[in-house]
């Protein structure tokens, strides 16, 4: 005889894992009135729309548009709630492709031969422990990289005040973030001479690892990223860190020949 799926059972019965509603008393046992249930139904629906709205908007981004108008409309309608409740996430974990890491290199002190300035790399597994503490620093270096906006006004901004305004805001934020990090180094290292650089750690392909015997932290994989479009293309870091300029960078390509693109991190 078939059992009623909603019949309450004693809690100490051993059962195979099943969804929570299947072993609880029937809906009629709910102590909440229908009016109260209606109010809560509206609340949970609005909340779930808010949970959905941000990743949906994030997903509709393209090279042509910052996001689709319908996605932007839903998001803007619930902005206050989404922002304050910390629901503004895209959930792009290692997507669309796993990408290179971005680090911060800080040069502390001046070059006064024979003394070399101190170099600090963030994050650094050998210094930052436990792993969560290390990861907090790793996220900071990724955040600095993601905030980057070049000092040169983009060509499209000349005739488009919206793009111009966005670029000015992005640039202001990047300068503020970088200055704050530099200031932290000045205080913690007790030195006025601090130069912060963004470093990209490219991912080696299987040929580089297996045939050419590169290690994952091979110096040839570290690239100093330019701070402006006027600078040279990214340059290799050969320890100690080379000034932005000379050596020709390795092409950052995967084994299928495609350029390595940046990936989201959890």
């Amino acid at each position: 005889m078939a059992k009623d799926r909603n019949t309450a059972k004693t809690p100490n019965q051993h059962e195979a894992p099943v969804a929570s509603n299947e072993l609880a008393p029937p809906a009629s046992a709910s102590p909440w009135s229908s009016k109260w249930r209606l109010i809560l139904s509206i609340a949970v629906t609005v909340h779930m729309v808010a949970v959905f709205a941000e990743p949906f908007r994030f997903f509709t981004r393209s090279s042509q548009r910052s996001f689709s108008p319908d996605a932007g409309y839903i998001r803007s309608w619930l902005s206050a709630y989404i922002d304050f409740a910390y629901l503004h996430h895209g959930y792009f974990f290692f997507a669309p492709n796993p990408g290179p890491s971005h680090l911060i290199s800080a040069q502390i002190g001046k070059v006064t031969p024979p003394n070399q300035p101190k170099e600090i790399l963030i994050p650094d597994k050998t210094v930052q422990w436990p792993r969560l503490y290390y990861h907090r620093h790793f996220m900071l270096s990724e955040f600095l990289h993601n905030s980057f906006a070049p000092p040169e006004q983009p060509a499209e901004a000349i005739n488009d005040p919206v793009i111009d305004q966005q670029w000015r805001r992005d640039r202001e934020l990047y300068v503020a973030v970088k200055s704050s990090i530099e200031n932290h180094f000045r205080i913690s290292e007790k030195s006025e001479a601090v130069i912060v650089r963004r470093i990209e750690h490219a991912l080696p392909n299987d040929i580089q690892v297996y045939r050419d015997k590169w290690k994952l932290n091979d110096p040839r994989l570290y690239i100093v990223l330019p701070e402006s479009l006027a600078e040279q293309t990214p340059t290799l870091v050969n320890p100690p860190l080379a000034p932005v300029g000379s050596p020709v960078p390795l092409p950052m390509r995967n084994d299928s020949g495609a350029e390595v693109v940046e990936g989201g991190s959890p």
Binding site: F94, N97, S101, P204, L216, S256, G263
Partner: peptide
Amino acid sequence: GEMWWDGSALWYALVNW
């Protein structure tokens, strides 16, 4: 992402130092 389709995504996750 093409790397999730061509099967190389996990390689690039594994070699991320």
